[in-house]
Design a protein around this nucleic acid. Sequence first.
DNA 1: ATACACCTTCCCATCATGGGAAGGTCAAGC
DNA 2: GCTTGACCTTCCCATGATGGGAAGGTGTAT
Lengths: 136, 136
Amino acid sequence: MNIGAAAASSGVTAKMIRHYEAIGLLRPAERRSNSYRDYGERDLHELRFIRRARRLGFSIPEIGELLALWRDRGRPSREVKRIAETHIGDLQSRVAEMQAMANTLRELVGACHGDDRPDCPILDDLALGGGARTKG
Amino acid sequence: MNIGAAAASSGVTAKMIRHYEAIGLLRPAERRSNSYRDYGERDLHELRFIRRARRLGFSIPEIGELLALWRDRGRPSREVKRIAETHIGDLQSRVAEMQAMANTLRELVGACHGDDRPDCPILDDLALGGGARTKG
DNA sequence: ATACACCTTCCCATCATGGGAAGGTCAAGC
DNA sequence: GCTTGACCTTCCCATGATGGGAAGGTGTAT
């Protein structure tokens, strides 16, 4: 199966499949006599795995770890769980940070009359240049 | 005031100050006879404005809009409010997306015994390659 | 044979940021 | 005056994930 078909079937673009191979996330694909890459069911499986993990927000290095564990039929599930938990923690931190931003902005938006008048608490606050006040 | 002092006083690195000038976010700084950039209070104000806005997660184009409005003393506050509200909406979407990821992962982690045994629902799920099941 | 779709590699762009080289400038100390 | 060290300048390169596109080879259908 050519790279185009593998791309269509896995949801990973051909461009990205070559990229994943180049950075070592995927092992080099088999080549046919015409130098075309050749993919089988097993490769498709890995490509779908990668796509799904990317959708869940795992970074490429994390996916590398997960793939290695996935390829190793005898690995302890402990490892996988640890990686997933670390990733959940990362997601939570980022969510908290963005919520803090949004809360600060909501306060400011609430204080801004938003009409033709020029004075605007949002700009006034940005102009202060201080740290995030709603942090604590 | 040299770029280093402006950087120290605004919290924006010298590297980034030059970058913001290069992409047109800041007007070209005054130059002294030795070709050094020269900054005054007004520039410091803009730099602090930018730093604060970046911290609140505004993109560079958004900051460009906000800066333009800020420089225009007579602008209607409506504009500023609209930009801020749009940005809040963006933040909320991203937060929701990341929370969905985290929830899916939490389910999977909850189902994984996480010991020496090799079977692991997390990897099993990733291997399915389907869409996000916890979406709806 | 011709056309068209597909494949290959290689280079460039994004976005915000940082690293670093090569070279000019300035202030302090000897 | 000359050296030293801190600062400035511009320019190039790297990140990480992804896409665009060129130049050229291959495969298949008409």
